[in-house]
Design a protein around this nucleic acid. Sequence first.
DNA 1: CGCGCCCATGTGAGCGCTCACCCCGGCGCC
DNA 2: GGCGCCGGGGTGAGCGCTCACATGGGCGCG
Lengths: 341, 341
Amino acid sequence: MNSAARPPAMSDVAALAGVSHQTVSRVLNDHPSVRPETRERVAEAIAQLGYRRNSAARTLVTRRSGTLGVVTPATALYGPTSTLVGLEEAARVVGWFVSVATIRQFDGDSMHTALEHFLGQGVDGIAIIAPTTEVAQAIAAIASPVPVVLISSASDVPPVPHLHAVGVDQRHGARLATQHLLDQGFTEVVHVAGPQDWFDAQDRLAGWREVSGPGAPEHIEAGWDAADGYELGLRMVREGVPRAIFAANDQLALGLLHAFWEKGVRVPDDVAVVGFDDEVGAAHYTPPLTTVRQDFGALGRLAVDSLQAAFAGEDVARQQIPAELVVRASSIRPAETAHGA
Amino acid sequence: MNSAARPPAMSDVAALAGVSHQTVSRVLNDHPSVRPETRERVAEAIAQLGYRRNSAARTLVTRRSGTLGVVTPATALYGPTSTLVGLEEAARVVGWFVSVATIRQFDGDSMHTALEHFLGQGVDGIAIIAPTTEVAQAIAAIASPVPVVLISSASDVPPVPHLHAVGVDQRHGARLATQHLLDQGFTEVVHVAGPQDWFDAQDRLAGWREVSGPGAPEHIEAGWDAADGYELGLRMVREGVPRAIFAANDQLALGLLHAFWEKGVRVPDDVAVVGFDDEVGAAHYTPPLTTVRQDFGALGRLAVDSLQAAFAGEDVARQQIPAELVVRASSIRPAETAHGA
DNA sequence: CGCGCCCATGTGAGCGCTCACCCCGGCGCC
DNA sequence: GGCGCCGGGGTGAGCGCTCACATGGGCGCG
């Protein structure tokens, strides 16, 4: 009945089981040199007392907290949040906790604050879902004592020590999307690019250009939001709508679809549209959106693996996961389209 | 040059500044009884050494980790992820870290594991974004030594000690949505409800029923996904499309819009649709969706406030944040609709 | 049969911090 | 002018764990 006073410590368990605290520790850490019988007694004492190992004490002496710090943008954007979920699951599999810091902007100050925050907390590694060029610079300036993994396609991250990079191969995904449109018979694909200070946006642009060739028209730069796509769509309606568009993400594509629908421009009959992300709901846009899917679960696992390799002192090369094209109605060439008008 | 060996400790700072470790501690904790001059010397030593307070040691002695554990479903659903972001920001304002655990299902086992995980880590409080009835029971069975706040409308959470509940007033939001449709002149509003083991779904249903009155038709139960809405929409097209629908979330509404568009049923001309959530992109659905917006930032702050009140021993009543109706084209009665066919 | 080695377990120190307590000197007050 | 009080600061213990080492009994081997 005195349970409220202080949670049971290892010594309490030891006393109850009639062993030393060290034996309890050995049981907890699966040390081989413990007789099954002793192990049993200790396990019983633990259960009886409701003992739970104090991780602060453990961290203090081992200098390892078993915690992964994740820096993520303060938005509900599909990509970043899915990546966070993927990371958490991968981290848990290897027994890590995940601590989160969101940041509103990726300037040096915000990044510095976030990293400082994590280092003070004693995290064992840091993952940054924050794919702007500013980030890499901010990190380079900090010289983290623990490994850092940057999650983005990041094809030109400066080679900073301890800084690894993993990502879905955005460039490959962009090639798939662009090639798909060309395969449909469109001779020219217009690219609505994302903010060019984001690695992902840069790479999607690069992938598009690789397939489109040098003769392709200039890309159009926009933000990541549907509102940007909508504005741009309205402008296209005024100035001329292309036959095929590859948008840098699904939200941009959604905004375009909205503008086209509003102005009576038919998709895919008048213009084919492809997005990127395969957001929840993309299958139900008007019309259902052809897009590029990313495997965020695999991405999380890759990031965690990369961090673990860093602990082991391995010099990990940049690693990428392939993307996958998901074909839906928005990009199917008119002749083949089925749904009645 | 021996910096790599061991990070500087408080005693190192003390030695450099020519004071005792306790004085350094006082400076760090803003204790008043330190001469400005001394404070200055200590601050300099800290900067020079790049000292960072070891939070594990601090946690060990204070028994407070300054960490908030958040349990959230393992999905990129708009509501949960937005709530997570809101929580993190509110937590940071009061100086808390946020640790995250995602769970795939809200059964007792998963919840138990997640809470056990956090308690071992020594979190000071736990927030659960997990609005199913199963959750409340699972929590009640655990008897957490730290305060727990359940984030959901949760109008019938059992009165468990230490268990607080905060949420956006789903019932109110549902009333707004339903009343809006009635105000448009529709005599009957059909409700497509979410999974009834979710508190939010229950409350949206209840709000709809309050305004619709007992004479209203039975609601239709579905999941949370666009695919569910789509299936249902197709069924409605076969069996009869109502004049006005209030869907339990935007994804369901999106699926309905998809089915209606595909089958040539016009929105809002033939059927008015209202959703719930105001997801990113809802303004750009076809047509733009009337929906109910929730202030997740305020929700996060309320949850954190509630936890702090719990520390102070206050017996906090259940608190709710009002929702806000956002009117767009999908619900505007035909006569008033503007965009040309 | 005695030496050494390994298995099983115990002992003590110390991780870096905060808390409780002690100490010293100056100043106001009766 | 002595006493108490308070500002400014120091000392030591101990939070709960792990690590390095000590111990002691059994068993294989020459």
